[in-house]
Design a protein around this nucleic acid. Sequence first.
DNA 1: TTGTAAGCGTTATCAA
DNA 2: TTGATAACGCTTACAA
Lengths: 375, 375
Amino acid sequence: MPQKGRGILLSMSTTETNRTPAPRRATIADVARAAGVSGSTASVVFSGKTKVSDATRQRVLDAAAELGYAGPDPRAASLRTGRSGIVAVVLEEHLRTAFLDPVKTATMDGLTDALATLGSGVLLLRHDPGGENPVTLDTAPVDAVVLLSCTPRTYESLDVIRARGLPVVVIEGDGGADAAHVELDSDEASAQLNTHLRDLGHEDVAIVTLPFGLDLERGFVTEEQIARIRVEITARRLRDVRQAFPDAQVVQSEGSFIDEGVLAGRLLLDVPEDGPRRRPTAIIAQSDLLAAGVVRAAEELGLRVPEDVSVTGFDGVEVDGLGGHVLTTVVQPSAEKGRAAGAAVARMLRGEPASSQLLNCTFRIGTTTGPAARS
Amino acid sequence: MPQKGRGILLSMSTTETNRTPAPRRATIADVARAAGVSGSTASVVFSGKTKVSDATRQRVLDAAAELGYAGPDPRAASLRTGRSGIVAVVLEEHLRTAFLDPVKTATMDGLTDALATLGSGVLLLRHDPGGENPVTLDTAPVDAVVLLSCTPRTYESLDVIRARGLPVVVIEGDGGADAAHVELDSDEASAQLNTHLRDLGHEDVAIVTLPFGLDLERGFVTEEQIARIRVEITARRLRDVRQAFPDAQVVQSEGSFIDEGVLAGRLLLDVPEDGPRRRPTAIIAQSDLLAAGVVRAAEELGLRVPEDVSVTGFDGVEVDGLGGHVLTTVVQPSAEKGRAAGAAVARMLRGEPASSQLLNCTFRIGTTTGPAARS
DNA sequence: TTGTAAGCGTTATCAA
DNA sequence: TTGATAACGCTTACAA
């Protein structure tokens, strides 16, 4: 079709003057009239909430087809019912960034699954307080809100949500008493991982951590820096490991990526024959992606995993690029987190009070850990 | 809070009998009344569409605060305005699967950016014709629809959309005359890649393709199988390469993954010293992830890239796990695709006719190609 | 700058 | 099984 242009505009206004009075889409009322039934009957034919005789239904359906009526307008329906069938998911970051994290993706997957069962779709919302973002929780027709990647800033969203009286579910974060929570318990599984390594005779252990949130460069960190960690998950996982291995060397990565793991791994494993530092016999990475990188670094240096060095991860996700290895890792129920959040949404929509759920991680022994190498 | 229980239920019904008559949320009418202004004035205070005296505005705002009114109900507003501020994105697959593809993620990113500017959010919809999926295009209050991963089946969605009269944008697919399209032109860039390899002296070239859509196992394929390829993108990219290298060996992968690339790479590169097959001097992979895997396979086998073997990709995405290499590749404007789709949505929402856009790929020379190794 | 009034298209309730 | 009626909460010409 042509773009706007003078000639076209003229002909358009011509059409406009002598066009039929009502070029608007058919409504359910039109259908009802055409079918010779009441509006409520027509409505019920589409919603299926009440029994309608076959004959009547057919008449309504025929009329609808005739008029090109495609079913009730969701906007009107949602005004009337008070439900839009949409649940907002608030992400802290760019999608690109968020979906780089396989755990987050899996959680989203579980969430969409659960919500689909419920009959709801997922509206992606990025929480960016700075940007001029006109579609926010203020103006989106949503029935509930799920907070997925929580940082302290995310909680600003909560005020808006509370004001609207929307049900809120917070995944791994603190949303206050009126929000439902989905929490993870990794204590037991982490302890098992520690024991596993201890039992294999590992004493020289190193840790590759997620970022501290302090804008540090990748590398070895000091106790002082450890004390100032600002990312909760990093701090907790580190604490869990250091309970068993208080003297472990700690390398902070700049993110949960394979390539970061490679760099951290080199730092730890590429040690001069008789330099001051000894090569650890086991490396505990705070994510599977980091662990995959460490495995890679080891192999690059001609070290065999697990014969020469053991490597463990955290998350239990499938890592593309790990080759034949199966990581020894703490498996977190990523998709289950989403499903639990979906279930919580369902409950709150049913009017039940916000209730929280604690999900357990499990410890999985893979092929990347073995007896400590004799030094 | 306690779960439903007998005692609780009793006390609840007690409360119910003697609670205040109207526990419903305040509406804009309530606010107007409390502020002593008309409904329209109150409305305008929130929408900002018309000038309101500071005094009046303040009175309205105060009344709203007093009543705990959090702004206009989006459901009602969207019924009235005919806009919900939501655009549906239809994906063919599980989110998990869709977001494994870095190109798709980047496109989503561009799309959400563009739509945010427009004031719209993105509703994720999975097109699954089989499943019982109550929130579909039929029932979702959306202003427009973007089809992202198109397969022939996706077009079923189109009928529903058309019936609703919603604007449609199809990214890399054929949505018919009334849809806007975003298309990619890689001819030029592909030709440049071919020329690049030719100029470097490569003649023994192999191709690692995306799946054929024929449920084939990973491995070498026959001409007959090539003739039956059912995935358009695979066919087109293969055709482009074979124009220049008609005799290239072809290995089909089972998906766009690094690990698939590794396996395909081994198949091509791990050849016996004096077996029947010669080792190719260059491998053209149909995706960057596959290419990354091929690079890896080469290095595992002790071959240097690009000294012993050149590797090229397709997509131009950042690949985690590629180490220091920069792939020689065809860069497609992934995010731009999304942005273009967003722009198309904006235009159609403004009432302009569906118009289509063709985006160009570019050829990028990285560090993974070099002169053909002498055999 | 503010007010009046007329819907937007549905569905829930109740009665027939 | 069907029908009449009254909301649902808001926006926007248009008038004052």
